[in-house]
Amino acid sequence: MSDHVKTAAPAIDGAITILDILSQSPHPLQLSDISDIAGLPQATAHRIINAMLQHNLAALAPGRRKTYTVGSKIYQLASSILGRQAIVPSFHPIAEILKNEIHRTILLSLPIGNQVVIVAKLDAPATRSFNAYIGRTMPMHLSASGKAILAARSVPEQLAYFRGESLIAGGLADESLALVNDLKRSARLGYAVSVNEIQQDVGCVAALVVNNQGAPVAAISACFTGAMLTQQSARTYSKNIVQAARQLSSLIL
């Protein structure tokens, strides 16, 4: 898994890589499988796995000799985090109405650092399967939800984001200038659009959710095949999405 970031703490890097592998596998994995996928020596993978077992970050799969799966600690942490997000239970009835109005998969995303993470999802029946799942993180500037949130931030905050994502080299590069214009348009229209940026032939329309102080705290988005998402269709669908986001905003303290 060479696409994982390497830091000055290789043991942590290895543990994160192994967690990713275990969480994405549909079945328990043997140590040799984990070692091969992670690109780690078996001795290193074994040492990291043993430490993860001690902390319940990994677990031995029941009934299968020496195979590993995600540990109970991960579920405890995820449940604890989601349990503190009062926005999630409020999202579901609103998303159910929105799903029935536009017949699209509906997502709720929260900002975490320079990324957005999907924390809730409601699938519409008989729609295309999208590579969007609870827990998926995406750069803000490549997702409709992230753009909706970023557009509501101040110019200094946006510039800080550009620097953090290496989108500024001396001055604003063409990509950054296009993003600035995109954010201005999103702020003016009240919704953001992304097409073919996270997944080929997939687009999203997102609207901002704010708290009672007007601060951006989340975004509601709907997924479409890229061919369906024109400027006109985005404008049409945005009316329902913006209304849903306003309803959710009214429930957020």
Rank of each mutant, 00 (worst) to 15 (best):
I48H: 00
A43I: 09
I34A: 01
E96M: 13
A206Y: 12
I81A: 11
M140I: 07
G83M: 13
A169N: 07
C204I: 10
L172W: 03
S2D: 15
L172N: 03
H27F: 09
I74E: 00
A59M: 02
I252Y: 08
S109P: 02
T67V: 08
Y161L: 01
D201K: 14
K73A: 14
G164S: 02
R64Y: 05
T67Y: 09
R64T: 08
V210K: 15
K147S: 01
Y191C: 12
V88P: 05
I106N: 12
G146W: 04
D20F: 00
M1T: 13
I37M: 15
A11S: 15
Y75K: 14
A58K: 00
S109Y: 05
M138C: 01
I241S: 01
L29D: 10
T7W: 01
A219M: 11
A132V: 07
V116T: 15
E197P: 04
V155M: 06
S154K: 01
A152M: 04
R104L: 08
A15F: 00
N240C: 06
L107A: 08
I74K: 00
I112T: 09
R136K: 11
Q213P: 00
F224M: 06
S233Y: 08
L150M: 04
G83H: 10
A132M: 06
P28D: 13
P26Q: 15
N100P: 02
E165F: 01
G214P: 09
A151Q: 05
D33P: 10
K66N: 04
S221L: 10
I168Q: 02
A126H: 11
G190I: 09
G171I: 04
V180S: 05
A218V: 09
Q231W: 01
E96D: 11
A152Y: 03
G146E: 07
A144M: 01
S221V: 10
L253V: 05
R153T: 02
I37R: 15
T236F: 06
L107C: 11
T127F: 05
V195P: 02
L77M: 15
L107R: 06
A207D: 05
G226K: 03
S109C: 14
A51C: 03
T67P: 05
Q85C: 11
H103F: 15
L82S: 07
E157W: 00
S23H: 12
R188A: 14
S166W: 00
P62Y: 07
I241R: 00
N212A: 08
I12E: 10
T127W: 01
N240S: 15
A160G: 02
G63Q: 03
A124C: 08
T67S: 12
L179M: 06
I102F: 08
M1C: 13
I81E: 08
P111T: 09
L40K: 12
L107K: 06
D3T: 11
P111Q: 06
G164L: 01
Y133R: 07
R235P: 00
A187L: 13
A152K: 04
F162A: 05
A173H: 04
S238N: 05
R246S: 03
